[in-house]
Design a protein around this nucleic acid. Sequence first.
RNA 1: GUGGGCGUAGCUCAAUGGCAGAGCACCUGAUUGUGGUUCAGGCGGUUGAGGGUUCGAGCCCCUUCGUCCACCCCA
Length: 443
Amino acid sequence: MSKSVTPRTPKGFRDFLPETMLRRNYVLSNITDEFHRFGFEPIGTPILELHETLFGKYGEDAEQLIFTAQHGRSTREPLAMRYDLTVPLARVVGQYENELNFPFKRYHIAPVFRGERPQRGRYREFWQCDADIVGVPGMSADAEIVSLMQRILSRLGFPQFQIKINHRQLLVAIGEFSGVPQEQLPDLYRSVDKFDKIGAEGVRRELTERGIAADAVSRMMDLIQAKAAGAGSLDLIADAIGEDDQGIAELRELAALLAEAKVPPACYEFDFTMARGLGYYTGPIFETVISQPNLGSITGGGRYDNLIGMFRRQSLPTTGTSFGIERIIDLMDELNLYPGRLGGTLVQVLVTVFNQATRGASMRIAEELRGAGINTELYLPSRKLGRQFQYADKKGIPVVVIIGPDELAAGVVKLRRLADGSETTVASSGAVEAALTLLSQTP
RNA sequence: GUGGGCGUAGCUCAAUGGCAGAGCACCUGAUUGUGGUUCAGGCGGUUGAGGGUUCGAGCCCCUUCGUCCACCCCA
């Protein structure tokens, strides 16, 4: 006997039991389905990448969080675990350029790894769910990304959400117009991004502490808080800094396209306080928030025209979004947005086995139900009927089939719906139909 | 990376430094053709781990691990 080991997962890594996994799969299959509806196609890439593929792409702070990997003592190919799905996309585009048909619309749903200290909604292994369009410089691609976000979140049943839209170059223009020195712009973004959390005063204080002139901070704060319905906030900004700005021009075009795409105006707004981590964005940026329970943003993305250049002599214009599915799932749990049929099991019918002599008959019924597309579990252990019912009840299986000696002799099957205890007896040839009827009447 | 809270039965939690408990869950029976109700009984512990103080530690001290929260940063 080996010494017993305390069973546990590594810090920040999680297991998912069936009930949880069913909910995760429900969310992912709905998102996937909508990706397909928009013509996005999947790719898959390895969990491990070459060390050199990942390093040098995220900045020093982030690189400390990258998991590295090795096999035995081999150091011939230093390896690392993927940190996101965007760099792998850039590598794939660079590597298979000749085989891809541009514009390349791909989605990628897979786990990524970051050695951060875990917290609520924050893990060392978490799934990312990205959709990106490579090769389209114009706002038509960005409009499609926004439209996709709106369709997916509506489909998942979120009663209310706000897609916030801003523009990287417009933020630069606002900073410069206000007199914030170029080298302090990153500080400015970082603070402005916390607007929702720490408020206008908090941002003002932080920027002043970082040594940005008070009058520049004041001018900037006034500008970024410009808010009006629809494209109205664009007018406010344009009045102040002038119409001659690429950010404003692109956002105006985007607004027009979103109207054409019939994206409901209530779902999105131009919000100049939204900055995103910044990093590699070069154009419009997107983020979705839900205000009811405030858990932060559930999507994030934007245009990053330079990134693919890391694996290619010339870059390709790219825009896309990432769905924060871990948070989306948390929120859906909290708001109870799952359909009732999801329950705790996917089994629809349990076929009981009365005794060894009737086992064959039960197996035949189960086989028939499965053939008709009904998720059917045959009770495998030899236990008395009461235990088999208890099992079905505890697991949430809606319908139980009984075929004992009496039924066998009479050539019938009995079906019982556990929710209300209603029972029907039908000729064994009618088992499938009876099961379907009972199931369809179950909410 | 910084600061803090919490680790007791499978789960949720009790227990002035003085006999380690309850509810739920689980198992058995009442009930050898029917679950979710009820009743009776039962199983369940190196109090996260290691050290220290004490006549005596779940409780106090140190170390360590885990976990949660707030920062940093981000998804």
